[in-house]
Amino acid sequence: MAIQKQLIAVLQLLLIALVFDIANGKGLELGFYRYTCPRVEAIVRKTTANYIHRAPSLAAGLLRMHFHDCFVRGCDGSVLLNSTANNQAEKEGIPNLTLRGFQVVDAAKTALEAACPGVVSCADILALVARDAIYQIKGPFWPVPLGRRDGRVSIANEALTSLPSPFANITQLKANFASKGLNTKDLVVLSGGHTVGVSHCPVIVNRLYNFTGKGDTDPSLDPKFIPQLKSICSPTDTTSVLAMDRTPRSFDEDYYTVVLRKRGLFQSDAALLNDKQTSAYVKLQSKSFGYTFFNDFSKSMVKMGKIGVLTGSAGEIRRTCALVN
């Protein structure tokens, strides 16, 4: 009788754990397609390499796209959907107007549909493409558990409300990441993704020309850096680009050195110096030559890739990434 009660108790705990996992979007696993599409990672890796070899700058865009997907409705591929006559999709949201690399995801999807039709989700493809693109430019490699399914809903305004703003302060950033199940270390580590890529003048002109509405500059910017930025960005410039750090095509720890020198482009970059934990990490990486950065980034990317995922029978497996079935 006692053994039966113990077995019942164990089964109840397992059931509770299962319900908890489902409610929190778990259910991803390494080797998810081992029987249904065993070459999935090789196919995505080859497709991604073909594009990054020709245009290495796409790596930053694909990493950003994965981040933007996961922070809006979870990692469900909703950022890939096109708008319809009745709905403006996430692509049309202001933070997503400069996203690049959709063609890489589409090409990988086409190759996978030829090899194993109707099996691999666009959400999984985006997660793999982002990882493989960064690895192609000599960045870290991280395991990508698979099994995501594609969402059917994509709303432009949600990109504006769900994504962390480049104008955010540290309190807002920590709250935004916490709402996605990510902690303060994840915040400062994933901010390191700004080590690759470029941004555009509109995100910094306010810091340069009218920070408090009095024609002043942001005091958190290095005064010696301001003339250089002004030489690139006029108050009305919407097209010129700025490198995020001094090595925008290399995935390295230089971003943290730039932030420590008060030369981070975004207010959200500068905000990392306004918290004890994030500031300590910035200082560590700026002096350690990235000793732990790759490993930390890999761990945080795995966590980010699990945000709000659809698994099991939820969502769908899209035939075309830009369209619901």
Rank of each mutant, 00 (worst) to 15 (best):
A175K: 08
H66L: 09
F102C: 03
E90F: 07
P38I: 04
P95W: 00
Q277N: 08
T171Q: 13
W142E: 10
L7Y: 13
F211Y: 07
S83F: 02
K214Y: 09
V153F: 14
R263H: 03
S154E: 02
Q6E: 13
F177H: 08
D296I: 08
Y291N: 12
G61Q: 09
T236D: 09
N274P: 06
I155L: 08
N295A: 13
K214L: 11
I22T: 10
V309K: 06
V40N: 05
N295L: 09
P248L: 06
A108M: 13
T257L: 12
L163S: 06
S162W: 00
D69V: 04
K91G: 05
F294C: 07
D186I: 01
G308K: 03
L208K: 07
A178Y: 01
D106A: 15
A107T: 07
T171E: 14
Q12I: 15
R34D: 15
A108W: 04
T48Q: 06
G193N: 06
E158V: 02
Q277M: 08
V309W: 04
V40P: 04
C233L: 02
A280C: 04
G147D: 05
L273F: 11
F141D: 14
H53I: 15
R318E: 06
E113G: 11
T292R: 11
T278W: 05
K185I: 14
A156V: 00
V144S: 07
G305F: 06
S78Q: 10
Q277K: 12
T195C: 04
I125A: 07
G315K: 09
L182R: 09
L182K: 07
N82R: 08
A159K: 00
A115I: 01
V309N: 13
L128W: 12
